[in-house]
C-alpha cells in the first residue's frame, strides 16, 4: 500500500509545497527585509516592519477589523441560530431549506456584494424609492460606512453560521427537552439551560467559521466601506499595490495570520484524532 499511497500523494505535495508553503515562507522572509529604492527588497534583515505594527494608525485599523468582524459574527449568530432551529424542526422540508441557505454561498461573492451597492448607493434603489415617496430630499449616505460593511459581511457569511449550528441541533436528542419540560422547566429555562449548552459545539464552530473570513475580509470593506471602514486586508493590499512597501505588507499579513491560526487550532483541538 505504501508505494501506491506515496504515488497518490505526490501531486498534492508538489502543489501544496510550491503554491501554499513556499509562498507563505517567502512572505515571512520578505517581512524581515528592508524596503529598497523603487519599492524593491533589500537587506539588511530587520524586525522594524513588525515594530511599525505598533503605530496607532495600524493598531486602529486592527481594532476596527476586530470590532467589525465581532459585530458581524454576533449578528450572524443572532440571525442564524433561530433559522437553524427552524430548519432542524421542519421535517421533510429540511433539505429544501438547507439548499436555500447553501445556494447563496455558490453564487458569486462579488455579485452579491454588488447587489448591496445597487441597493445602497446614492442613486440606488432605496434612496430612489424614498425620494420618489417624498420622504427625503437628499440621498441618505447608506453606502461607504462601517454599517454597510457589517451588512455585507453578515450577508456573505450567514450560511457558515447556520450550517454547523443546524448540524449540532440535528444530533440533539429532543427527548431531553421534553424531560426538562416534564420536570417543570419553563420554556425559557429549558432553552437557556438545555438547548443552548447542548448546541454549543455547533455555535462554537459557527463563530469561528464566520469570524475567520470576516477578520481577513478585503472585498467587502473595499466595495461597501469605500475607504471609510478600512480593515487589515485592505492595509495588506494597499502596501502591496499603491504604497509598494512589500516588507511591511508582509509583516501585516503574518500578523493577520496569527489570530486566524489560533482560531483554527481552537476549532480542531476538540475534534479529536480524525482531522478531516
Amino acid at each position: 500500500m505504501n508505494r501506491l499511497r506515496a504515488l497518490f500523494l505526490a501531486p498534492v505535495w508538489v502543489i501544496v509545497g510550491s503554491l501554499l508553503f513556499a509562498p507563505l515562507a517567502i512572505v515571512f522572509l520578505y517581512s524581515l527585509l528592508t524596503r529598497g529604492a523603487y519599492g524593491g527588497l533589500a537587506p539588511p534583515w530587520t524586525f522594524e516592519n513588525y515594530q511599525r505594527l505598533a503605530d496607532p494608525l495600524y493598531l486602529g485599523i486592527a481594532a476596527q477589523s476586530f470590532l467589525l468582524a465581532g459585530i458581524s459574527t454576533l449578528l450572524c449568530l443572532l440571525i442564524g441560530y433561530p433559522l437553524a432551529l427552524f430548519i432542524s424542526r421542519s421535517g421533510p422540508r429540511k433539505n429544501l431549506y438547507l439548499l436555500l441557505v447553501i445556494t447563496p454561498f455558490w453564487i458569486s461573492f462579488l455579485v452579491r456584494t454588488y447587489a448591496w451597492m445597487f441597493l445602497l448607493r446614492d442613486t440606488g434603489l432605496i434612496n430612489t424609492v424614498l425620494e420618489a415617496a417624498g420622504l427625503i430630499r437628499e440621498p441618505l449616505p447608506l453606502l461607504y460606512n462601517p454599517a454597510a460593511v457589517v451588512l455585507g459581511l453578515v450577508y456573505g457569511y450567514l450560511p457558515f453560521m447556520v450550517l454547523p449550528v443546524y448540524a449540532a441541533l440535528e444530533r440533539l436528542d429532543l427527548a431531553l427537552l421534553e424531560a426538562a419540560a416534564d420536570l417543570g422547566a419553563a420554556p425559557r429555562a429549558s432553552t437557556l439551560r438545555v438547548l443552548l449548552p447542548l448546541s454549543w459545539p455547533g455555535i462554537r464552530a459557527g463563530i469561528i467559521l464566520v469570524f475567520i473570513p470576516c477578520l481577513g475580509a478585503y472585498l467587502t470593506p473595499d466595495l461597501l466601506g469605500g475607504g471609510k471602514a478600512m480593515m487589515i486586508g485592505n492595509l495588506v493590499q494597499n502596501q502591496f499595490t499603491t504604497a509598494r512597501d512589500w516588507p511591511f505588507g508582509a509583516a501585516v499579513s503574518l500578523a493577520l495570520m496569527m489570530p486566524v491560526a489560533l482560531l483554527l487550532v481552537l476549532l480542531l483541538r476538540r475534534k479529536g484524532e480524525e482531522l478531516l
Binding site: I26, G216, Y218, M257, L264
Partner: peptide
C-alpha cells in the same frame, strides 16, 4: 496534509494573493 488543507481554507484570500504574487 490535513493541516495544510485547513491552512489553505482559512488563509485570508488577500494574504494568499499577495503571497502567490511574491
Amino acid at each position: 496534509l490535513a493541516g495544510a488543507v485547513y491552512l489553505s481554507l482559512v488563509t485570508p484570500e488577500i494574504v494568499m494573493g499577495i503571497s502567490l504574487l511574491a
